[in-house]
Amino acid sequence: MLLIPCPYCGERAESEFSYGGEAHIARPADPEKTSDADWADYLYTRTNTKGVYFERWMHAHGCRRWFNIARHTVSYDILAVYETGAPPPKFDTKSEV
């Protein structure tokens, strides 16, 4: 189980949180002009990095607020926690083989 540092409440057990998947996915600004391929990419395609990954969590059984974290998807180490809307911190996000 992960120990997740909620930026508002502090460290809490993973079972208090819900997962929101990859962070920084922007809804296409003009859906009418978005191609089917781009729309599918927005809806379904995720980076799925084996390495440092930016993802959204929500403290469902606590403050109920959303935030982002940078987590390594092999070691599960949480490397950074930051507010929704803030730009991602600088990390090498290339996948390991």
Partner: peptide
């Protein structure tokens, strides 16, 4: 587990 993970282990809960 709900999150992306390549660790080949599952959480206790």
């Amino acid at each position: 587990d709900r999150y992306v993970g390549y660790g080949q282990r599952g959480s206790m809960q």
